[in-house]
């Protein structure tokens, strides 16, 4: 079965990203396909490459990267939500005349169309969110 997982909440303050990560690993272990993980709203902070967790804590950004690396997962961050919150790749940094970027490798900025396309192509879509 084809799944898409949507993440609406930021890491560290909220349990939702880690729940989403465990869900992704479990569905892949069960032999299902993960079409895409789509990060929306404060979920875009999952792709901040500057996240620097203490060594004894999970670095969720790294964990998403490892998942993407191991299973060729499409990690898409909503571009409009990301730009508002200051999560930029090189292209957007140039466009908005910023001299720094912070989008982690393996994550891609794209539009909400990627969420809707995932809804069209997936058998199951699940959202992990928080308050606010």
């Amino acid at each position: 079965m084809i799944f898409t997982v949507v993440v609406h909440a930021s890491p560290c303050q909220n349990a939702a990203p880690e729940s989403a990560l465990r869900y992704c690993k479990a569905l892949l272990s069960a032999g299902h396909t993960l079409h895409r993980v789509f990060f929306y709203r404060d979920g875009v902070f999952n792709g901040n490459q500057l996240i620097s967790s203490p060594p004894d804590e999970l670095n969720i950004m790294r964990a998403w990267q490892e998942l993407a690396e191991e299973h060729s997962i499409d990690l898409v961050i909503c571009i409009a939500a990301a730009i508002r919150r200051g999560v930029l790749d090189a292209t957007e940094a140039t466009r908005y005349e910023r001299d720094q970027t912070n989008l982690a490798e393996k994550f891609n900025l794209s539009g909400l169309g990627q969420l809707v396309e995932a809804c069209i192509l997936s058998d199951r879509v699940i959202t992990f969110g928080g308050q606010g």
Binding site: M1, F3, H8, A16, R22, Y23, K25, A26, L27, S29, A30, H32, R124, V125, I126, T127, F128, G129, G130, Q131
Partner: peptide, 19 residues
């Protein structure tokens, strides 16, 4: 367990998240 979460996701036609 988590694997049963996936089973329930498959056995039902859709998932609605309340948060």
């Amino acid at each position: 367990e988590m694997d049963e979460f996936i089973n329930l996701s498959v056995l039902h036609n859709k998932i609605v998240s309340w948060f």
